[in-house]
Design a binder for these strands. Sequence first.
DNA 1: TAGATTGTTAATCGATTAACAATC
DNA 2: TAGATTGTTAATCGATTAACAATC
Lengths: 209, 209
Amino acid sequence: MISDKTVGRLSLYRRTMQKMLAEGREYVYSHEIAHACGVTAAQVRRDLMPTGFSGTPKRGYSIAALLQSIGNLLDDPERQRVALVGIGNLGRAILAYFTGRRPNVSIVAAFDQDPNKVNQVIHGCRSYPMEELGRIIEEKRIEVAIIAVPASAAQAIADQLVSYGVRGLLNFAPVSLRLPSDVYVEDLDMTISLERVAYFARHGAGVRR
Amino acid sequence: MISDKTVGRLSLYRRTMQKMLAEGREYVYSHEIAHACGVTAAQVRRDLMPTGFSGTPKRGYSIAALLQSIGNLLDDPERQRVALVGIGNLGRAILAYFTGRRPNVSIVAAFDQDPNKVNQVIHGCRSYPMEELGRIIEEKRIEVAIIAVPASAAQAIADQLVSYGVRGLLNFAPVSLRLPSDVYVEDLDMTISLERVAYFARHGAGVRR
DNA sequence: TAGATTGTTAATCGATTAACAATC
DNA sequence: TAGATTGTTAATCGATTAACAATC
């Protein structure tokens, strides 16, 4: 089983290499990826192990072939579908942010309880009332959801999403969700992140990265 | 020196206890905080050590007094000032999100290169043209900044911010910033987070939290 | 060949958890 | 007192880094 950190770094390496490929580079060494991504070369080589892809001492890694291998590991064979719940300021920004950004993961439906926000197309995504949540998730076989609702509503919505078949959640609400352990939850808590940055800005960063 | 993880969890415990205090609770046990925050009781007790605050076997911790101790540890004696760079969809959402949310950390200035977005008040925050960046940061003694600009502009802006005295960065741009090691950088990369959630939604979450 | 890089194992490091005497 | 919880140390766990033979 690959660790969450490794998956994140592979995703980062991929982005870096896509840029290199676009610039006409064909081969890359581990230390070049490492430098661009702020990690060690040993870390890169270790992270690449689960892809099963090999480089050569002479030329390093073929960028195109390595991108293929990482894609095989990380991406769904068919495009993975994501639901967004909560079309407030943050929800809209998320829609704008992800529109066309990644080909393999895309937000295919947005939900809100406010009647004024539904049955529209927002940044290319169709919006629905909350009553449609179960139907759409099952119809579109959505397995991933983004929660961008107020903290007070987040747990109830997460429970609903899981009951309809969602297996992974990206949670922007500032609350710790309690869910079955086979559901993957990643909390993106901006308040805590900002407080942490504020703390280390005052007390010194230590030697990181 | 406290670890970044401990700082994050203390911030989380604080939020939980503020809610309890608002509900009229006076005392709390470590296992109650742990349950609410999805961590172990031993973790909570260990995290509380650097606050220097003690509970009693009989009653646990006095919530009000513990909140005070955590505040002494985490918060700046005077309100800490933050700059936001980039007033796009995401920047606006960030402004809306943080307005009045935390009393001890507040966004006091926003910047953008688009003349149509500056010299306004957006969600209670004044916006300025990029040319004013150095002046305002120095005048307001801003030590923390949020980067919400496109990836292509992020490194140059980060360099500027650091040159003006910023010591901590919350980076939303999908790029690895290269900065002096005494500057604290936290990356909040939504694309990578979503890809990670998508991966573990398909492959099983493992036993987390 | 000599020299740099690869894949992978062993050593190190740091964080989490378990354990337990002290305490109320 | 008996029982639960505290503060803190020791043990465990997992991830990162160092090392190195194999390779081009």
